[in-house]
Write a protein that binds this DNA or RNA. Structure first.
Length: 421
RNA sequence: GUGGGUAUAGCUCAGUUGGUUAGAGCGCCAGGUUGUGGCCCUGGAGGCCGUGGGUUCGAAUCCCACUACUCACCCCA
């Protein structure tokens, strides 16, 4: 128990962390080109923020939050998603006072949900995400989607499916809900047990039930996009035309319903096949009422979350190679104590000079040191024994060519600097 | 919360109808070279056979319980 990571958590080991760094590099780069700046917010917040923000009736709030009382008797919750905290920060720091829109991203940020783990689902998982405030224009919606797709593209991932939908606003959504409920009530006998329950609590949920019997009924159900008010409809058309103008392929999927209460108008998902049942790699939408609901001035917003672990799964499933940075350019192989000291000093100097250098820390034989140098991928090995020490010189071995030269120790760094950089 | 699968070395896995000291490959360490990596050869370390109980003269093997891992439902990234 002591030496086992808690259920649903995972170590990111050195064998894998370079992949994360590579992906993060691309994300930062794309964000900077889209004029998004990084924000870092707390990993825990007051529980009430998520109750009000994410929604009291959602599964996330009802049964998946890591909530506890701190020593000051405050109810604290480890963030289950990224938007609420960023919105809180936007309000608290009066970001609405700056030139709008305000566009921000967060990177590899841990989220926590108490769920049964499975492929692509963890209790601690990391998200990349963006949040943009201050504009009602579908331009911002289209930009968010384009940004997400640009990241996939630059990672070499093609063939992901983009699904978009509009779930309306506070004007048209209630009208639709009623129409849907009426329809479902008529069809009740044909629905599965779960959906008969959902009908009462959250009829929208019935739309994405995977039971065959339900999908058949749902196929003929009234669709939100037919009930959109003029403003929402115009907005949705504006999004579609911008996506088309940018050459972005999409499918309108009237069945996508997001599980967080704050969404309005645009919702979208980016889906991967081949990574198991948890196939949504990226999901998000517009939340025009959220800032106001959390106590700020009425301010529209849009954002998405992208699951880092799921992204890694996609990369693995496509067998996409991520360049692994070399561990060592030059290994310093020494024989005897005096040479080892000279070698250590030399290694330190090389590191100062910007060379990836390593020396023996195990008291190994020369043969073993050579073997180790090969394993860590050293392109060159410096060999210093008693003879070399006497003459103040060193042997440089090129590991690929198996060629050796003798160079004065004093000139070594310059020599290597010229040949390794 | 519900259901299925799995559990033997660091990793991937063998292990016969229950039978003595539980194996292989890879990896790790050392030697074959008195100062030279990759290939090859030799040797070594490393296992409470997930945990607890039961059946039996005898259990990695059969039975039960628990736990962990895993996949799926649900939900979502």
């Amino acid at each position: 128990m002591l030496t086992r990571a808690p259920k649903g958590t995972k170590d990111i080991l050195p064998d894998e962390s370079y992949k994360w760094q590579y992906i993060e590099g691309i994300m930062r780069d794309v964000c900077s080109r889209y004029a998004y700046r990084e924000i870092r917010v707390p990993i825990f917040e007051h529980t009430e923020l998520f109750q009000r923000g994410v929604g009291d009736t959602t599964d996330i709030v009802q049964k998946e939050m890591y909530t506890f009382l701190d020593k000051g008797e405050r109810s604290i919750t480890l963030r289950p998603e990224g938007t609420a905290g960023v919105v809180r920060s936007y309000i608290e720091n009066s970001m609405g006072g700056a030139a709008q829109p305000t566009k921000m991203y967060y990177l590899s940020s841990s989220m926590f949900r108490y769920e049964r783990p499975q492929a692509g689902r963890f209790r601690e998982f990391r998200q990349f995400g963006i949040e943009a405030f201050g504009s009602l224009s579908p331009s911002l919606d289209a930009e968010a989607i384009a940004l997400a797709l640009q990241i996939f593209k630059e990672l070499g991932i093609n063939g992901l499916a983009l699904n978009i939908n509009s779930i309306g606003c506070s004007k048209c959504k209630p009208v639709y809900n009623e129409a849907l409920s009426k329809y479902l009530e008529k069809q009740e006998p044909g629905l599965c047990k779960d959906c008969r329950q959902r009908m009462k609590t959250n009829p929208l949920r019935v739309l994405d039930c995977k039971q065959e019997s339900c999908s058949k009924i749902v196929a003929d159900a009234p669709k939100m996009i037919d009930y959109l008010c003029e403003e929402c409809s115009e907005h949705f058309e504006g999004l579609k035309s911008r996506l088309e103008a940018a050459g972005i392929e999409y499918a309108v999927n009237p069945m996508i319903v997001r599980g967080l209460d704050y969404y309005t108008k645009t919702v979208f998902e980016i889906i991967a096949s081949d990574i198991g049942a948890q196939s949504t790699v990226c999901g998000g939408g517009r939340y025009d009422r959220l800032v106001e609901e959390l106590g700020g001035k009425p301010t529209p917003g849009i954002g998405f979350g992208m699951g880092m672990e799921r992204l890694l799964l996609v990369l693995d499933s496509l067998n996409l190679e991520i360049p692994e940075p070399g561990l060592c350019d030059v290994y310093v192989c020494t024989l005897g104590d005096k040479a080892a000291q000279e070698g250590f000093s030399l290694t330190t100097k090389m590191r100062t000079a910007g060379i990836k250098a390593e020396c023996d820390h195990m008291g190994r034989s020369m043969k073993a040191q050579m073997k180790y140098a090969g394993k860590i991928g050293a392109a060159k090995v410096i060999i210093i024994g008693e003879d070399e020490l006497k003459n103040k010189e060193a042997v440089i071995r090129d590991m690929d060519k198996s060629e050796e030269n003798t160079v004065a120790i004093e000139q070594l760094i310059d020599f290597l600097g010229a040949s390794t950089r």
